[in-house]
């Protein structure tokens, strides 16, 4: 099977620090790929390199077999790759609907939209509500309430819903459960499963081993700026994964089949 998103020989240097050292990366269609690694291993650089947030010094990225060269996250977004940042990238004082459509607002058809530049609020609200309902988030009753009035888990839910609404090809989640409590983490994990069941592949960056082992189909272990190995969570334990990650244990040599 051809990977939907593929990186080959990616290199990124910041001054004398090499964050990515000829790193490879594969995301298969329909899977949840977890990316784990120690702090400073280059996970973020890898994700930024495939999502357009940084431009790799060397190497190639392919989306559905076609070579791509993003110079900004906006371009990646237009190509169908949505990223949910750890900071969520939402404007707290604005409403859920405003946030979901930020930067790609819908305008009314006809004179009001074309000449008066009026936004099509009813349509944006309807679509936002549909998406939240679809993901089972409709206990948020008022689509016009400000994002800052939501709990941490709800905000994460809205951010994931935004990504799911627009991410046609790949969704990248950066530490989606890091700031959440146990109950809210659970809900976000359910959301991730839910998005996956819609057939959209997900890249999940997380430090939380139980979460990773619960939802991931494959685990990309990142160490010293490159892909150390890809493991199947069914074949290894969490302590194995941590041992690979930290270098305490020799990584399996065979390339893992998806």
């Amino acid at each position: 099977m051809e990977p939907i998103l593929k990186g080959r020989g990616l290199v990124k240097r910041y001054g004398k620090v090499t964050a990515l050292d000829h790193c490879d990366f594969d995301l298969m269609p329909g899977e949840i790929l977890a990316v784990i690694g120690d702090n400073g291993a280059g996970k973020s650089s890898l994700i930024k390199a495939v999502s357009g947030a940084v431009i790799p010094d060397e190497g190639e990225v392919f989306l559905e077999g076609k070579k791509i060269h993003f110079t900004s996250p906006i371009q990646a977004r237009e190509a169908g790759i949505e990223t949910v940042y750890q900071t969520l990238a939402m404007s707290p004082a604005l409403s859920i609907a405003d946030n979901m459509f930020m930067g790609r607002e819908l305008r009314k058809p006809g004179f009001m939209g074309k000449w008066m530049r009026q936004l099509d609020r009813p349509e944006m609200e309807r679509r936002a509500r549909d998406k939240l309902t679809e993901l089972g988030l409709m206990t948020i009753q008022n689509i016009n309430q400000a994002v800052e009035t939501l709990s941490g888990g709800q905000r994460q839910g809205v951010a994931v819903a935004r990504a799911a609404a627009f991410g046609s090809k790949v969704i990248i989640l950066d530490e989606p459960t890091a700031a959440l409590g146990v109950k809210e983490s659970r809900k976000v994990l359910e959301l991730i499963q839910d998005v996956k069941s819609r057939g959209i592949p997900i890249i999940l960056i997380s430090h939380n081993m139980p979460h990773v082992f619960e939802v991931a189909d494959r685990i990309h272990v990142h160490r010293l700026g490159k892909r150390l190995c890809v493991i199947n969570p069914k074949d290894y334990t969490m302590s194995d994964a941590v041992a690979f990650m930290t270098g305490a244990k020799e990584a399996p040599t065979q390339t893992e089949a998806a």
Binding site: T87, A89, M90, S91, L94, N99
Partner: peptide, 11 residues
């Protein structure tokens, strides 16, 4: 509100 968030959202 938050210029970085706005930038990442495509503003």
């Amino acid at each position: 509100d938050d210029p970085e968030a706005a930038e990442l959202s495509g503003v």
